[in-house]
C-alpha cells in the first residue's frame, strides 16, 4: 500500500536528475520539512492532516525555486560536482536548522487518520494506508497530466532530453530548471505530509528515507518518471514481505543490497527506454 507514496517521494528525485543531471542529496530533508509542516499544521488547526498537503507543497516549491535559481544556478557553469556539494550542504543545513528550531525530540502528529481497519473481501485494509494510497494515485495522475498535457510539462521533458534544442524551441531553460527543482522538492514534501501521521518526526528523518529514494530511482531508471512509481511499488513489496520473515532493519539491509546489485548489474534501471 505504501508503494504509491514511495513513488511520489522518489519521482521528484528522478525529475530533478532528469533536468539538472545531479542527484539531489537534500531530497530526504525536503521530505522531512514536509512532515514538520504537517505536524505544525495539525497542531495549530486541528484539521485532518491531508489538508496540509497543499501547504507543504507550496512551501517547498518556493524553497526549491529559490534554492535552484539563487544558489545552484550560480555554480552550474562549473558542471555537476559543485552543485552536488551544494545539495549536500543544504541537506546538512536543513536538518541542523530543524534541530535548532524544533529540537531533536521525536514528534507524533497529534490527530491521526482514524485508525480503523476495513475489510474488502478477505483483505483487511488499514484506513490511513488506503488514504495515502488514493492520494498517491491521484498525484501520479496529476503529475502525468502536468508533464504530458501542459506546455510547461513538455518544456520540462524537452529540457531534460536536450537543453540546447529546447532553447531553440524558445524555452527559457533557466526558468524550466528552477521550476523542475521546485516541483521535485514539492513532491518530496507532499510525500512527507502523507507519511507524517505514520512515522515519528525528527530532524534527521530524511536520512532514513534517502536510501529508499535512491534505490527506487535507480531501480526505475534515473530520470524515468514512470519507473519511479514502478520502483516504489517493488520496494514496498520487498519491505513488507521481508518484514513478515525478518525484522525491519534486515529489510533495509536487503534494500541496500538491491541498490548495489542494480547499480552493478543494470545501471540503466530495470526498464530500458523504447528508442532503438
Amino acid at each position: 500500500m505504501l508503494g504509491g507514496v514511495y513513488g511520489v517521494m522518489s519521482v521528484g528525485l528522478t525529475l530533478i536528475f532528469g533536468v539538472l543531471r545531479i542527484p539531489n542529496f537534500a531530497h530526504g530533508e525536503f521530505l522531512m520539512l514536509g512532515m514538520y509542516v504537517t505536524y505544525w499544521f495539525v497542531v495549530f488547526t486541528h484539521l485532518n492532516p491531508v489538508f496540509s498537503i497543499a501547504v507543504s507543497a507550496a512551501v517547498l516549491f518556493v524553497l526549491g525555486y529559490f534554492f535552484q535559481s539563487q544558489l545552484l544556478s550560480r555554480v552550474s557553469r562549473q558542471g555537476e560536482v559543485p552543485q552536488i556539494f551544494l545539495t549536500v550542504a543544504l541537506s546538512i543545513f536543513l536538518s541542523n536548522a530543524a534541530e535548532i528550531l524544533w529540537g531533536s525530540n521525536y514528534r507524533i502528529v497529534p490527530v491521526s487518520y482514524t485508525s480503523t481497519t476495513f475489510h474488502i473481501g478477505l483483505v483487511s485494509v488499514y484506513a490511513p494506508n488506503a488514504i495515502i494510497f488514493a492520494f498517491s494515485l491521484f498525484l501520479a495522475g496529476l503529475l502525468w497530466f502536468l508533464l504530458n498535457k501542459t506546455h510547461t510539462g513538455l518544456a520540462i521533458q524537452a529540457t531534460a532530453q536536450d537543453p540546447e534544442a529546447a532553447q531553440l524551441m524558445g524555452t527559457d531553460i533557466k526558468k524550466v530548471t528552477a521550476v523542475s527543482f521546485a516541483l521535485g522538492a514539492a513532491l518530496a514534501a507532499v510525500a512527507g505530509s502523507l507519511l507524517a501521521p505514520l512515522y515519528p518526526i525528527f530532524p534527521t528523518v530524511g536520512s532514513y528515507f534517502i536510501l529508499l529514494m535512491f534505490t527506487i530511482v535507480v531501480l526505475g531508471g534515473l530520470g524515468d518518471v514512470k519507473g519511479a512509481f514502478v520502483g516504489g511499488t517493488l520496494i514496498s513489496v520487498v519491505l513488507s514481505v521481508s518484514s513478515i520473515f525478518v525484522t525491519e532493519d534486515l529489510g533495509f539491509a536487503l534494500v541496500f543490497i538491491m541498490f548495489i546489485l542494480i547499480l552493478v548489474l543494470a545501471p540503466q534501471g530495470l526498464f530500458g527506454k523504447t528508442v532503438k
Partner: peptide, 25 residues
C-alpha cells in the same frame, strides 16, 4: 529559428509533442 546540425529532435517525445514544444513558444 535554427534547424540545428544533426537535427536534434527530442527522441523520447512523440512527433506531435516535438511540434507542440515548438508551437508553445
Amino acid at each position: 529559428s535554427l534547424v540545428p546540425e544533426g537535427r536534434r529532435v527530442f527522441p523520447y517525445l512523440s512527433v506531435e509533442k516535438n511540434l507542440l514544444v515548438a508551437a508553445g513558444t
